[in-house]
Computed example of a mutant assay.
Amino acid sequence: MSRRGRRSHGAALALCAVVAVALLAGCQQAEQDGGTAAEEPRREPRGHLVTTVVTERAPVSTQHERPGTLRLRRVVRLYAEEEGRIEQLEVFEGDRVARGELLVRLEDDVLRAELDKTRATLAQERLDLKRFQDLAKRNAASQDDLAQARTALALAEADLKLLEIRLADTRITAPFAGVITERLAEPGDFVTKNTQLLTLADPDSLAAEVYVSELVLPHISEGDPARIRIDALGSRRFAGEILRIHPTLSEANRQAEVEIRFETIPDGARAGQFVRAELATAAVERLLVPFRALRQDRDGQFVWVMDAEGQAARRPVRTGIRIADQVEILEGIESGARVVTRGFLGIAEGKKLTRVDDDAGPAIATPDATPEDVDSMP
């Protein structure tokens, strides 16, 4: 072999040695990398992040504020029961009157004259009856004559009683102690029968009238305490109680009228003033969820729950009354259900869920949840 051939052969051997060393190093590095990958545990994909609350039934007493108006429950309209000219009418709107106090007097001259005539007729009929009785004892008068005399006396007595009643009707007195709210005639006016002259109201009958929903009515009753605020008198609330619950509901809004009376009627309270009444219902077992957990679509209201397998499930519900930031669930879920309250964006039926936090308790630590995840949840 020539010198040149020997040099080429040596160079080829050197190149093969370098390649072999490189391949060996690569295999060792691959083994090391493969060992590290085999030792690292596989990372499980995390579920959809949500916050939840566990539902439970609890006795709840609710407060309801209803607008209303002050009304006088006892109001009497006084009418003329006889015709005649008004001779006396000295009371005005706002005047307080006592029970039995004379309010109106009509002229009665004609009636008194008729009364005197009837009294004279009555006296004569009594004499005639006595005379016929004496004659009948001597058989000088028939029984028919005696019967006619008795009938005439009875008619005269009836006429006298009728005139006495009519004469009393010319004087109108207060049927109870109260306040004059209307004066519709003046002295000297000639009035006919059934003409309204005055309106008398009992100030102690002042009460608040409010309208209450049919959902609340089953949980209140007569005698329940209430508080009344009169806007015209400031922010003070006055103690009261439910006096009467009307038996019928309005077909327009399904509400019934409720009357509330004051324990002590405040100074300055007047009929027609706007009021706000606070009613407290009796404690009732209710299933409540946060209002934000309630969803709505074209099929109606529903909530998302986390089932036993940790998956999302859609539950249609029927709701009752709303209490502050919570709403009552009447149908659809039971006590103990885990209801989703946040994290609705991207949620779907059967999707795996991961609880980040519980609204009704301390945070639950999960390896995949971070504070930044909670802050970014819808």
Rank of each mutant, 00 (worst) to 15 (best):
M1N: 14
R3M: 05
R4M: 07
G5R: 06
R7V: 03
C16Q: 02
A17E: 04
A20H: 03
A20P: 06
C27R: 13
C27P: 07
E31H: 14
D33Y: 07
D33P: 06
E40C: 01
E40Y: 08
P41E: 10
T51A: 12
V53L: 11
E56W: 07
A58P: 11
L70Y: 14
R73S: 03
R74D: 14
E81Y: 08
E83P: 07
E87T: 04
V91G: 01
E93K: 10
E93G: 09
G94Q: 04
R99L: 09
L106G: 01
D108A: 04
V110C: 01
R126N: 05
D128A: 09
R131A: 11
L135S: 11
A136F: 09
R138V: 15
R138E: 15
A140N: 14
A152T: 08
E157D: 01
I165A: 01
I165E: 02
R166P: 00
L167S: 01
T170Q: 02
T170N: 03
F176D: 12
V191D: 05
N194Q: 15
N194R: 04
S205A: 10
L206C: 11
L206M: 08
E209N: 04
V210G: 05
V212T: 13
P218R: 07
R227G: 08
D231H: 15
G234K: 15
A239S: 09
L243T: 08
L249R: 05
S250A: 13
E251Y: 04
A252K: 13
A252V: 09
R261S: 10
F262E: 13
A269Y: 15
R270V: 15
G272A: 05
V275P: 05
V275I: 15
A282R: 14
A283H: 01
V289N: 12
A293W: 04
Q296D: 00
Q296M: 03
Q301E: 07
Q301D: 04
R318S: 11
I323H: 04
I323S: 04
A324L: 01
V327E: 07
I329Q: 12
L330P: 12
E331R: 13
R338V: 00
T341L: 05
R342I: 05
A348F: 03
L353V: 00
D358L: 10
A363Y: 14
P367G: 07
D368H: 11
T370Q: 09
D373F: 10
D373T: 02
V374W: 13
M377P: 06
